[in-house]
């Protein structure tokens, strides 16, 4: 059995904010009719999370359910649990028009921490960070690649991108966080 490895092996860079590749995280893409009662039931039973509203994130312990599109959720959970929860969802949604896919190894997760974490991303994304609430997931682009980000803690932003562009994303964030390149003092 091969050993699971995250995209950049947890590398980090220090600047006016700290950029870290967060290592292995379980991620499941769940697509289907979010309004169907079976979907909310299956989600609750498998992860404990309530069905999130538009652009919202609902949490239960370490599990997160994020609203990605009107017919798509992204579930974040500890890496070792992803396969089991995937199987649970598939059983619960048998017969429904739904898709469950374990995408844990197809994505990379970054954490940007520090009081000026917003500024690192404000340089890269067409997003008004002053108006981004805490429990909201924002899908956007960071420079040339797709990304999804949310405020995972005070002074911390988490960002998900495709694993194939993890190195590009890390270099982008690290460059954006370089000391002395802060935006005008707040």
């Amino acid at each position: 059995m091969s050993e699971p490895t995250s995209a950049l092996g947890g590398s980090s860079a220090e600047g006016f904010a700290r950029v870290t590749e967060a290592g292995l995280h379980g991620m499941i893409t769940l697509r289907g009719d979010l309004a169907a009662p079976a979907m909310a039931r299956a989600l609750k039973a498998a992860t404990g999370c309530a069905l999130p509203g538009q652009r919202a994130i609902s949490a239960h312990g370490a599990n997160l359910a994020a609203w990605m599109a009107p017919d798509e959720l992204l579930l974040l959970l500890p890496y070792p649990e992803a396969a089991a929860i995937c199987a649970k969802l598939e059983t619960a949604l048998a017969g429904e028009h739904a898709l469950v896919a374990n995408v844990s190894d197809a994505r990379a997760l970054f954490r940007i921490t520090g009081a000026k974490a917003d500024q690192v991303l404000a340089k890269l994304c067409p997003v008004d960070f002053a108006a981004l609430p805490a429990a909201e997931i924002r899908r956007t682009r960071a420079a040339q690649v797709a990304a999804a980000l949310w405020r995972s803690a005070p002074d911390e932003i988490s960002l998900i991108c495709f694993r194939s562009v993890a190195r590009y994303m890390f270099d982008l964030l690290a460059t954006s966080a370089r000391p002395g390149s802060e935006l005008a003092p707040a």
Binding site: Q54, R55, A69, P70, P126, R138, R139, R141
Partner: peptide, 12 residues
Amino acid sequence: PYCGIAADETEL
């Protein structure tokens, strides 16, 4: 109209 985000042209 689906996600309610005021999206910049570069996101579209």
